[in-house]
C-alpha cells in the first residue's frame, strides 16, 4: 500500500541548525496494516508522515502509494489518497464553518469542485447518520460552527472527515496527544472502530506506549530518522511497555557512549 524507498530529508542544510531528520528510511506498509509509530522527540515520526502527505518534499528517495509514485505530487493532489488527523485539534477543521460544511469539504476530497451547490440534502442525511455513530450528539448540531466544539469533538469530527471518502492510507499524527485522558481514550476507541470497520491501512504516531501496543497489528520504533524496531503479529501482542522502555534506554546509552 505504501512504500518508502531510501528517503532522506535534511532541514536547514548548510546552516548551524542543520537537522538530518530522515536518513535512508525504507519502509513498506502492507494493505490493511494498522501500524503504530513510537520514538523520542526528533526521531522523525512526524517528519515521516509529513513527507508521505507531501507537506515537505523529500531530498532523495521515492514514495509509492498503492504502486503509484507520488514523490513529485504536491500535497493537495496526494490528499486524494490520504486521510489525515493532526495533533492540534484546530488544524483538521475550519472553525468558522458549520459541521456539515466541514463534512461537505471532506466528502469532495479527491474530486473536482465546481459550481454545484456546496452541500446537498442527500449528503446531509449521510452526515447525520455518520455523526450519530460517533455518539457525541453532533448529529443534532450540524449547522453549528465547528469552533464551538471541544477539542475531543473536533478530533472525532476530523477523524470522520478523514475517512468519509475511504482513503488508501490514514495518517494519524499524535491525534490524541492534546486531549485529556478520558477524551483521548474515547477518540482512540472511535479510531479503532473506524479503522477496523473499513479495513484502513493506517499509520498512527503516538507517545503512549500502552496505546502503541494495544492498537494495531504492527509497531515500529523510530530513532534519528530511521526505523530501529519493527514487530508485528503475535510478537507485537506479547510486547510489554517495559520491553519498549528498555529499547529506549539502549538507544540513550548508545548515545552516551558516542558522546
Amino acid at each position: 500500500m505504501l512504500e518508502l524507498k531510501n528517503i532522506y530529508k535534511v532541514f536547514n542544510p548548510g546552516t548551524i541548525n542543520e537537522k538530518k531528520a530522515i536518513q535512508n528510511l525504507n519502509f513498506t506498509l502492507n494493505d490493511g496494516d494498522f501500524v503504530t509509530v513510537i520514538g523520542g522527540n526528533g526521531a522523525g515520526k512526524s517528519t515521516m508522515l509529513n513527507l508521505i502527505a507531501g507537506v515537505y518534499s523529500v531530498d532523495q528517495g521515492s514514495i509509492l502509494i498503492d504502486g503509484e509514485n507520488v514523490t513529485k505530487k504536491p500535497e493537495y493532489k496526494r490528499a486524494a489518497y490520504l486521510g489525515r488527523v493532526f495533533q492540534d485539534p484546530m488544524m483538521g477543521t475550519a472553525g468558522n464553518m458549520g459541521i456539515e460544511e466541514n463534512l461537505a469539504m471532506a466528502y469532495r476530497r479527491g474530486k473536482s469542485r465546481g459550481l454545484r451547490w456546496g452541500i446537498s440534502n442527500a449528503e446531509r442525511a449521510l452526515y447525520r447518520e455518520k455523526l450519530k455513530m460517533l455518539d457525541l450528539g453532533l448529529e443534532n448540531r450540524m449547522t453549528n460552527k465547528v469552533r464551538l466544539l471541544s477539542g475531543g469533538q473536533r478530533q472525532a469530527l476530523t477523524l470522520l472527515m478523514a475517512t468519509l471518502q475511504q482513503p488508501k492510507l490514514l495518517l494519524l499524527d499524535e491525534h490524541t496527544a492534546a486531549l485529556d485522558p478520558k477524551t483521548a481514550q474515547k477518540v482512540l476507541d472511535i479510531t479503532d472502530r473506524i479503522v477496523s470497520e473499513n479495513h484502513l491501512s493506517t499509520l498512527m504516531v503516538t507517545h503512549n506506549m500502552k496505546d502503541a501496543i494495544r492498537y494495531g497489528n504492527r509497531l515500529i520504533m523510530m530513532n534519528e530518522g530511521n526505523i530501529i524496531f519493527d514487530v508485528s503479529g503475535e510478537e507485537k501482542k506479547n510486547l510489554h511497555v517495559s520491553d519498549l522502555l528498555k529499547r529506549f534506554e539502549d538507544i540513550s546509552s548508545d548515545r552516551m557512549l558516542l558522546a
Binding site: 484546530m90 468558522n96 471532506a106 474530486k111
Partner: peptide, 15 residues
C-alpha cells in the same frame, strides 16, 4: 471560504 479559515485543512482535503 475554508481557505481563508484553515489552509492546512483545505490542502488536506485536496484543494
Amino acid at each position: 471560504r475554508a481557505t481563508g479559515n484553515n489552509r492546512k485543512m483545505v490542502r488536506a482535503q485536496g484543494v
